[in-house]
Amino acid sequence: MEAFLVSTGIVALAEIGDKTQLLALFLAARWRRPWPIILGILAATIVNHALAGAVGAWLTSFIGPQALRWILGVSFIGMAVWMMIPDKLDDTDTGSGRFGVFGTTLIAFFLAEMGDKTQIATVALVAQFQAYTAVVAGTTLGMMIANVPAVILGDKMAHKLPVKLVHGIAAFIFACLGVVALMGGLGF
């Protein structure tokens, strides 16, 4: 349960102001059709985070506990620093074309998540907790907690969130996880 709750909380906080949340706002403003956008985000997140979780599980199978402790500790501290760098939406074409709203959202979100903070966090959290299903479910729920309101409320919500404060809280949590990992408090 801890892996699920930590994963949900970290990703929900990390996603505030992230490029995929900006993408959600953009798609919602462009098409004003929330359900295909929400379903596209969900499908893309499940596939992306399932693959990221598989990488995290794979890493733990061949990296020794001591090396894994240092990799995770440094990775979480790196994520804390990365959280403080604001994201911008890349200049990518998100025209609906032949894929429709759902297909465009699915493709755009899957590609935007590649190498993103939440994908890297999913890898690290699966490696840390060694709880693939709980972490992937938690990170997916965290993505939906952050992005569904963005799709439904659109631009009205984006300007009212204290993004720097939310990023600061997420950075603090990542830094704490990093320090605990380096001190050997995560079971390694």
Rank of each mutant, 00 (worst) to 15 (best):
D18T: 05
L59Y: 03
I10R: 01
I16Y: 08
G138N: 00
V81I: 14
P86M: 14
T104E: 11
W58R: 07
F26N: 15
K156D: 15
D155W: 10
A150R: 02
I16W: 03
K160S: 13
G100C: 05
L25C: 05
L13I: 08
H49D: 05
M183L: 15
T133I: 04
E113L: 14
A131V: 01
P36V: 10
V148P: 07
M143Q: 13
K164E: 14
P34F: 10
Q130H: 00
L106G: 02
L89C: 09
L27A: 03
G95R: 13
D18S: 15
Q130S: 01
G168H: 07
L186F: 11
V180Q: 10
T45K: 07
L27Y: 05
W70K: 11
A12T: 03
A108G: 06
A171Y: 10
V136F: 03
P149G: 11
A108Y: 03
V179A: 14
H167L: 02
E15Y: 09
F172C: 10
A171N: 10
M114N: 05
G138A: 04
M144E: 06
D90L: 11
D93V: 13
L165E: 01
I77H: 10
D87G: 10
L161E: 07
M114E: 00
L89H: 00
V81A: 14
